[in-house]
Amino acid sequence: MLRIDQHMVAQWRRVPAYRQRLLQAMGWLLVASTVWHFTWAPGQMRVQELQQALAHQEVIKQQLQRLPSAPNRQPASAQTLTAASLSERAQRAGLQVQALEARAGRIEVSIEGPSEIVFAWLHELERDEARFLDLQLQAQGERLQAQLALALE
């Protein structure tokens, strides 16, 4: 092993100085480009993804702010909330009811529609004092899918 190292050092010394500097510069360039490729570039891609997600959130925020406030009215009694009335309210609002199930003091429903209409419908439920047990929202382009569970009391 020592002999190989000595042989390589001897060969390196025989290379002209300008070529040594050129090889060293190429080595450092290779190291720098490798570091950039594995650290900086993926970080920048993640930053771009986060910026796009933030822009999408801003669009949703603006849509929520444009929703008209509903006139004041008497809240419906939480006891009158049934699976049938919930389905009827959703369809009357122009939403697609994808799943509806009533069990053990709760109603689970999955709806889909334009985001403004979904938010307005959820706001109306909240205003009518419906008690939310669970709510999950998923944006799909301009449409919004909501899966919610409401308490029957």
Rank of each mutant, 00 (worst) to 15 (best):
W40M: 10
W40I: 02
A41H: 15
P42G: 00
G43Q: 04
Q44E: 15
M45A: 14
M45Y: 13
M45P: 09
M45F: 12
R46E: 04
R46F: 07
R46G: 02
R46A: 05
V47Q: 06
Q48F: 09
L50H: 12
Q51K: 11
Q51P: 02
Q51V: 12
Q52N: 12
A53V: 09
A53F: 08
L54V: 14
L54A: 12
L54D: 14
A55K: 08
A55Q: 06
H56W: 07
H56R: 13
Q57V: 04
Q57P: 03
E58I: 10
I60Q: 03
K61E: 15
Q63W: 12
Q63P: 13
Q63F: 03
Q63E: 15
L64K: 10
R66S: 11
P68F: 04
S69E: 14
S69D: 09
A70G: 10
N72W: 14
N72H: 15
R73S: 12
Q74F: 12
Q74N: 11
P75Y: 06
P75H: 07
S77Q: 02
S77E: 10
S77K: 04
S77F: 01
A78Q: 04
A78L: 10
T82N: 06
A83N: 05
A84M: 13
S85A: 14
S87L: 08
R89W: 15
A90Y: 05
Q91S: 02
Q91M: 07
R92Y: 08
A93P: 03
A93M: 06
G94W: 02
G94N: 08
G94Y: 03
G94K: 05
L95Y: 00
L95A: 09
L95R: 01
L95G: 00
Q96S: 15
V97W: 02
A99K: 06
L100A: 04
L100F: 01
E101Y: 13
E101T: 03
A102T: 05
A102Q: 07
R103P: 13
A104D: 13
R106H: 09
R106V: 09
E108L: 09
V109H: 09
I111N: 01
E112K: 12
E112S: 14
G113M: 01
S115L: 08
S115K: 02
S115D: 10
E116F: 04
E116R: 05
E116Q: 06
I117S: 06
I117M: 06
V118W: 01
V118T: 08
V118A: 02
V118I: 07
V118Y: 00
A120L: 08
A120D: 12
H123Q: 02
H123P: 01
E124Y: 08
E126V: 03
E126M: 05
E126A: 15
R127C: 07
A130H: 02
R131H: 04
